[in-house]
Design a protein around this nucleic acid. Structure first.
Lengths: 337, 337
DNA sequence: TTGTAAGCGTTATCAG
DNA sequence: CTGATAACGCTTACAA
């Protein structure tokens, strides 16, 4: 138990030292407040000497605005997730907010518990990168004036800001690329996670293939990571009719897939097999992979979220649905780029 | 500007609905408080129905303990950093704390600004993963009862908990491995970041080499990442006396180094060149690299930090220095593992 | 522009 | 075990 006998210096002490009232101190630290330059100077100097910092807990209590934005995410250590996280925290900071990071696992109610945490700390908003909250808790947040951003969750509840990519359409472009490269035996490599983005990519790929008169072999395994890519590669590449083009739902999966294809099956990419991924993680640009893939517009996603948060809520249900474009980055894993 | 006309439900409302006093509500939500099972029931039900959540801003104000721990870090999107971040946030959460994430850049005073943020939110502690704070602000934190953890910063200020690895000694083990593999032309590949860990690895490597009567070629470039590894590889591998063993200060650097060596210089690893890295990021275990490297004991680091925080401060200067061991993970980038 | 005073939602203290 | 009351550190009418 921390005894912590009242250690932080308070505005009252600064006021006393500066010879002004507490309100003056408060005003000195409030951007647009009506205070004379001279008193502000005096206050600031006293604050400096005493090492005073405004208590944002108390300020948040009064203003009914904590400045905290809660980031709810699982698998933080994953390249795409951590890139998005970096972008989000940075933009949040420059917007004068502070990020609270809550890790979720894939267990039931994990996101709901995270949102409760956000409510307890009276976060101004929560940004959800993983999982989907229960409808009831979403309502609770909204009712309490806590704003919600759903990234790549493809939900249709009104209220939250929903930021999504054009996964379906992007997947169609993969088919075009494969067909142009002369591929005919298409496969889709994915995981069993079944997230909206994964489903959309799969559906879009299959639909576009069908319009070209082509079938798609779909293989899914485990969680969307490197290892899953290897497993799926084994399943796909030991078939009698081996595919000559595979769209991997994720770059991480694609890396595992390529490694297995090359090192265990001695298949050369793109000569014998074309591969496309999704996310454009850093590793995709490494010489060992040079993966053709779609770029997650992380900066744009973060900007969309942060500017929406910066503009105060205009009504109860000010949530919109934003669809962002994923650019195809051509590298060397598909013939005829 | 959010109008947010007092939306969150307060303890008073719960008290009224449950027909008890506010204190009863408070007690119902305080683990070891003296309250009868029956009233707790009544309170909890009313709270449930109203959607009440304890306001941690107010609680923190009273208890003088916010439950917030501030994580100060740059380059969050980097594999090793994000892995440590995941571990830290998870363990913090299970310890009942909540993580506040503050991103720093490499500019001057960046860490100090981050610490100010931590102070404003009255964080119970700050964990610093990058950079080093100014001595004055460190003192300010300590004086205010805010605890400090420095990870891999190798500082000697009293007060904070300092968690470091045995970098120097580990680097010595690399030399042994290289010598055993029959290597004689040693090189050290690093960046210009000049962090304590990097310096320790370099010094340890050179010292151990000298004790074997060997010289070390040192090459440093830019910031510690994949690209730097490629640049350093170019410099090292175009020498007339090409090294036959290189210790890379970081796995990310090693990946870039290996890719350049193999794809641009057609050097085979480990036959013609032995490589060792540091960190054991996920990519090091991928088939394309199979890098022999040192494992950062991220779980142990996080545990050390969290348990120290959990045990309340026993005095002003309760900081200790902890030295953790980095295990050498043998893979295929060194001959004769 | 400034000071006074009220109030934000809690918890701690102290009677009962 | 329970309820009133006084803090906690701040902001913000309101009045001067």
């Amino acid at each position: 138990m921390p005894l912590s006998h009242k250690v932080f210096v308070s505005a009252a002490e600064v006021a006393r030292k500066a010879g002004v009232s507490r309100s003056a101190v408060s005003r000195a630290f409030t951007p647009g407040a009506s205070i004379s330059g001279e008193t502000r100077q005096r206050v600031m100097q006293a604050a400096e000497e005493l090492g005073y910092h405004v208590n944002h807990l108390a300020r948040g209590l009064m203003r009914n605005e904590s400045g905290i934005v809660c980031l709810i995410v699982s698998d933080v250590a994953t390249p795409y997730r951590s890139a998005l996280l970096r972008e989000l925290t940075q933009q949040l900071q420059t917007a004068g907010k502070v990020a609270m990071l809550v890790n979720t696992d894939r267990s039931d109610g994990s996101v709901d518990r995270a949102l409760s945490q956000a409510i307890r700390y009276r976060a101004d908003a929560s940004i959800i990168l993983s999982g989907l909250p229960d409808k009831s808790i979403t309502q609770l947040c909204l009712r309490n004036g806590q704003r919600l951003v759903l990234i790549n969750r493809d939900d249709d509840q009104p209220g939250p800001l929903r930021i999504n990519l054009d996964d379906h359409e992007a997947a169609g472009r993969v088919v075009t690329a494969f067909v142009r490269a002369g591929c005919t035996r298409l496969a889709f490599a994915s995981s069993e996670a079944g997230t909206p983005s994964l489903m959309a990519r799969e559906a879009g790929f299959i639909a576009a293939a069908k319009s070209h008169g082509l079938d798609v072999i779909v293989e899914r395994y485990g969680w969307t990571g490197y290892e899953a890519g290897k497993v799926v590669a084994h399943r796909l590449l030991t078939r009698t009719q081996r595919p000559d083009a595979v769209f991997c739902a994720t770059d991480l999966l694609a890396c595992g897939f390529m490694d297995a294809a090359r090192h265990q099956f001695s298949i050369s990419i793109p000569e014998q097999l074309c591969v496309v991924g999704f996310d454009d993680i850093e590793q995709s640009s490494w010489s060992s992979y040079q993966l053709t893939t779609f770029a997650q517009p992380v900066a744009a996603i973060a900007q969309e979220a942060v500017t929406w948060l910066a503009n105060g809520s205009s009504g109860e249900l000010d949530g919109r649905s934003v669809k962002l474009h994923a650019d195809l980055i051509w590298r060397d894993s598909v013939r005829g780029g």
